[in-house]
């Protein structure tokens, strides 16, 4: 019948070290939601492409639904749960900008959009519209038509730049 072999994996999730056991077929998506309770990681498709399962792996966005859990051994994983700012209500600048710019309707794509924006802004504090579109192109949004999201990222970039100038 089904095999029961477990594989031990260690990684850092949102700054906390985790030791877990997984099956060879398990994806990071399964592990994050079923075992670790990071429910901000969503699912929208079967073979990759919708992007709502995005997480950051060593600072770069990946689709967690296509990432075998055993492959992240020793890596740093970030989900939206790990994003905290020191400002208002503990929100990061990107979160604030998304909230005030109506950059979410149903909100199902929002965790992934925010993480992708974060990965971009950490590398490129002053992105052009095209660079923002490229960075977010791996996540679909069925509700907003994307423009408010692009605007929110522009605004977040500005807020972050201001903060570093001070």
């Amino acid at each position: 019948m089904l095999n029961e072999t477990r594989i031990k994996v260690r990684f850092i999730l949102n700054g906390e070290s985790r030791n877990i056991e997984c099956m060879a077929a398990d994806t990071l998506f399964d592990t994050l939601r079923d075992s670790l309770g990071t429910m901000s990681v969503k699912q929208g498709c079967d073979f990759g492409g919708c992007g709502v399962c995005s997480v950051l792996l060593d600072g770069r966005p990946v689709y967690s639904c296509l990432m075998p859990t055993w492959k992240v051994e020793g890596s740093k994983i970030e989900t939206l749960e790990g994003l905290k700012g020191k400002e208002l209500m503990n929100l990061d600048a990107i979160q604030q900008a998304f909230a005030t710019n109506f950059a979410q309707q149903c909100g199902y794509c929002t965790p992934a959009m925010i993480l992708n924006a974060k990965a971009l802004l950490e590398r490129n504090p002053n992105p052009s519209v095209d660079q923002i579109k490229d960075a977010l192109s791996g996540v679909l949004c069925r509700c907003t038509g994307y423009m408010p999201i692009v605007e929110a990222v522009m605004q977040a970039a500005m807020m972050r730049r201001k903060k570093t100038q001070v």
């Binding site: 998304f98 109506f102 909100g107 965790p111």
Partner: peptide, 18 residues
């Protein structure tokens, strides 16, 4: 501002899948 926006930008909004 949407009253559910904070829940949504922090990933705390609960969907049936969750």
């Amino acid at each position: 501002q949407k009253v559910d926006s904070i829940l949504k930008v922090t990933g705390k909004a609960l969907y049936t899948k969750d």
